[in-house]
Design a protein around this nucleic acid. Structure first.
Lengths: 203, 203, 203, 203
DNA sequence: GGATAACCGAGACGGTACGTCCGGTCTTTGG
DNA sequence: CCAAAGACCGGACGTACCGTCTCGGTTATCC
């Protein structure tokens, strides 16, 4: 891990860049959130701290980039499965699996935790990071609305808040595993309400 | 016979105890989570750091006690309002209001954040702290089941995970305010499913 | 060591007194000067800290009493051996042996060290403690003067400063052992000068 | 070829280094040994505590460097004055004056005191620090032996132990001032014995 | 013989200092 | 010009003692 890299002059060194993300990845896997400090990442990556700060203004930014690198590796789009129920369940369960199987869950927990201490991090999380994650869900809901599975005036934002809120809650209390059909039943209940256009419909 | 208990040694000074919680309260209100360090709390309370550590093994423990002090001051039980819909909405909206109006919201965000960095804190949060908060909801659900508003085999734990997950999500993304009937509609959707005994019923 | 003692009314409890000195003795023997804190002594003696401070205003005072207790146990007067040379050598070597064989050496090193940080301790060391130790030497010098072994105008204070200075130096640099006749030769040199009434005579 | 040594990274800041020693110097002069804490030195020097610990592993190390800085400023070598008597008196009196006039005396007292609580400090004091101080005396004794003022087999180590022991004793009991020819007479007595080759001769 | 006063163990308290870790910034060296 | 390395300040961490204080309780002594 600490193979001797050296400066390559006045352009960004991609090896260094990857080494830093790898170091963060390993630390996250080995010691969890508490083990990831800019200091420790720099040490393990064999990089100087200013190098980290040049590219990522904060630990959160580093973690976000790490998370997204993992995501593109592990999380595919959800194809048309014929029903919103199947697609949403596939989406949520896929996210849960991704959080469980890779350090991404750790990274995500860390990002949320950091955002509670730092307003800028919170805004970046809410306004840039989360919308990217909801894009996949939006595609599914578009298809559902086209199929008539949910009412035209359904409160889609609320529906997603509930689904992601539930997921966050399980992630943050480390209870991602106890899943005996809970996701299926939750999605069914929400879709039923969204279809009726009554209770989950916008005002 | 008389009480033969003989406490020995000096006993905890309640003024100091209160001064420390007050100091934490103020720091939380003024500077948010990042402003609360054991050092700063001790300084403002005019207490020694060892005094803090004598009573609270960690910052999390201090924040939890602060949170519960605020809660007993601000949050009453939910009386029988005639329907589970009304009672659950009152509960959730009460919690949201409590989080918005007092530093308790800050405290709670901090507790969740700390738990992501510290396994012991997470266990204490999940296994001791949260169940206390869910007790009020349990009473409401008991009444609802007695009224026949939800099926006998409804998955009450899932229902609460969804309600609290939604609340956490809004709290942690600092979006507790944009509430135009969302809570009412969510509760209605969940209760509809729980009554049918179908989708939100246990397996 | 922590046999349960209790108050014996409004007079000093000699058992407690002894237990405290014993505890200090043991700590000194086990961990040296650094291991002797009022806290640790109280803990090991099973006594309260205020009890220590009631009788000894400082750690130095406690160490001095400990030292003198040891001294009366281990260090006898020097009888008339016929010559000042023999008697002074017996005195100095006795002191060195006492310092080496018991925790008294540790105690004495501690007393000297404490006095460098605390003016009151220094005064008490210099004006009360040391004169007591020089009393034995004074008796020897009186006899020597009566025998005519040292000139009437010899600078006795200087002679003792040299002898004790040499001893302190060896004690404080932990070189009390490497003694191959050094004390004998030093005493002989000083007595020769003191007899001549020339170089070691007062002004 | 050019010097191919390439140190990388920022280098030690000499201003900071001096500021720390100055701060220690002032604290020593103002409050004595007890006033010198790493904390206080860092505070006054406007330096971070880790900076102190980076360069000096302990307070003793800092004090030693301070002492030696003062010494090179204040204490010159002893030139050939024609007789060992004059040279040794000049040496000892110079050291006493140095201890009296500058905070160096305080520093030296502190170093000795620290060494009583810390074995490593004691070894460093005895095996590195003191020999440096005795080097000047060794030069004088070499000259004296060349002149025939002291016997070839004289126990030079003992002679120095006595001279320095006497000096320490006076320093540590804060009696450096009462000097009415005492040093002269002591040196004379020791040189007389060392010349005779009898009493102060080696075994 | 009852009050009282000094003692006792225990331990909480406000403080100070310890030695370490980390967050960000600045400076030096070299590609 | 910019990357790498690392020194720097500042500050929080959790711990050990300091010396003082306040307890509940005991017992010898004095009124």
């Amino acid at each position: 891990m600490t193979d001797r890299r050296t400066s390559i002059g006045n352009s960004r060194n991609p090896e260094t860049h990857a080494a830093i993300l790898d170091a963060a990845h390993e630390l996250l896997a080995e010691h969890g959130y508490a083990g990831v400090s800019m200091e420790a990442v720099a040490r393990r990556a064999g990089a100087g701290k200013p190098t980290l700060y040049r590219w990522w203004p904060s630990k959160t930014a580093l973690l976000i980039e790490l998370y997204e690198r993992e995501k593109t590796r592990a999380l595919a789009e959800i194809p048309d499965l014929g029903s919103a129920q199947k697609e949403l369940v596939a989406l949520i369960k896929g996210v849960h699996r991704f959080w469980r199987k890779t350090p991404a869950g750790q990274a995500f927990r860390s990002i949320i935790a950091e955002a509670q201490a730092d307003d800028a991090a919170l805004r970046s999380l809410r306004d840039e990071f989360l919308p990217r994650g909801r894009a996949t869900a939006t595609v599914i809901l578009d298809r559902a609305q086209a199929r008539g599975e949910i009412a035209p005036d359904a409160d889609r934002e609320l529906l997603l808040d509930v689904l992601f809120g539930f997921s966050w809650y399980r992630l943050l209390t480390h209870r991602l595993r106890d899943d005996t059909g809970a996701v299926e039943r939750l999605v069914a209940a929400l879709l039923a309400a969204a279809k009726a256009g009554g209770s989950l419909a916008g005002d």
